[in-house]
């Protein structure tokens, strides 16, 4: 929906204006299930692009088709100008993929994993060793280079996994849920790494079920649900499309949530969203007047508010509004 806007920001040279990834009407069926059900996608070069959606939305299937690991049942796609069906080998030569589960040999050391891949790419002898050692140093894994990967922490594995994708600088780096299962420190570290890679010119297409991840990292976000793209744009555009003027109220006593919900429903027309933790309600308020009246009604009913605010919706609320409440995004645990 905003193709024209981002295209103008790019350099005008032909190869720079071609999108890094382009897909039209991609379909993948698994038996009766249409895991990906007609998705169009254009990922401009040099950008971090996020595919956001709940578990089972079809994110991984979409990415695996683009990385030539799955054959589409219908539609077409090209990556760095190469058709994924007609020229899969050329696509593979210009991408790297880091899957959801670490794509590493746990029995080998970190250095041996990188050496293995460097040699498969065609680096020989000294140059393969240099390539492995440079990447180990860049990802601060030199100290652990001689240890078997099975002894690595989750964060170290992820770093090695990403390093393994950079033996040859890829045109597009596919990251499937890069921070799932990582602790907050490791997640921050992976985020910084992804930003640094994007700064060095690599196009990054990542999937995530975390809104904060998409919000923090991606220049553009495609929201996917049940195999279809339901929205696309920058995080700001997505929020604006849902409408500003969201009223958030937090109750001092969660037991009165249902009562508060009923009162809000009397004064405001939007769908009322309950936070997963329970004590918060969010609802679209057409105007500040309407919001004030709703608050006044809550106070009149002696429902004590711990907090209330007016603001733009969070991406979670955007997603909720877009899917009509059908999808539930991943929620990180408290303190995560």
């Amino acid at each position: 929906m905003n193709d024209a806007v981002h295209m103008t920001n790019l350099q005008s040279r032909d190869e720079r204006t071609l999108p890094a990834v382009s897909a039209r009407g991609l379909v993948k069926r698994f038996g009766e299930l249409r895991a990906v059900d007609g998705i169009d996608l254009d990922v401009p070069r040099g950008m971090i692009f996020a595919i956001l959606g709940p578990n089972g939305a079809g994110k991984t299937t979409l990415m695996r088709m683009l990385a030539t690991l799955l054959t589409p049942d219908d539609g077409s796609a090209s990556v760095m100008g190469h058709d994924v069906i007609a020229a899969p080998h050329d696509v593979r030569a210009s991408i790297a993929m880091t899957g959801q589960f670490a794509s590493l040999d746990e029995d080998l050391t970190g250095r041996e994993n990188l050496l293995l891949l460097a040699r498969l790419w065609g680096f020989r002898g000294r140059s393969a060793k240099d390539r492995a050692d440079n990447l180990l140093a860049a990802f601060e894994l030199s100290d652990a280079a001689g240890r078997q990967v099975k002894t690595y922490s989750g964060g170290m594995r992820r770093r090695l996994d990403i390093a393994a994708s950079l033996i040859v600088t890829p045109g597009v780096l596919f990251l499937d849920e890069p921070t799932t299962g990582l602790d907050p420190n490791a997640r921050q570290s992976v985020w910084r790494m992804i930003r640094a890679l994007a700064d060095s010119g690599v196009t990054i297409l990542l999937t995530t079920q975390y809104l904060d991840e998409a919000d923090q990292l991606a220049a553009r976000i495609a929201v996917i649900d049940k195999g279809r793209k339901i929205a696309e744009g920058t995080s700001r555009e997505l929020k604006a499309a849902t409408g500003s003027g969201f009223l958030h109220v937090a109750l001092a006593d969660p037991a009165r949530l249902a009562e508060a919900e009923a009162i809000l429903a009397c004064h405001l027309t939007g769908t009322i969203q309950r936070s997963p933790e329970g004590a918060q309600l969010s609802v679209m308020a057409g105007s500040t007047d309407a919001a004030s009246q709703a608050i006044a009604a809550l106070i009149a009913a002696r429902i004590e508010l711990a907090d209330f605010s007016m603001g733009s919706p969070s991406l979670e609320e955007v997603f909720f509004a877009l899917t009509g409440g059908s999808g539930r995004l991943g929620k990180r645990e408290k303190g995560d």
Partner: peptide, 15 residues
Amino acid sequence: LSSAALSARLEMVAP
């Protein structure tokens, strides 16, 4: 891992 340090160390490598 500081991103500046990482950027500095990441060279573009052709196959």
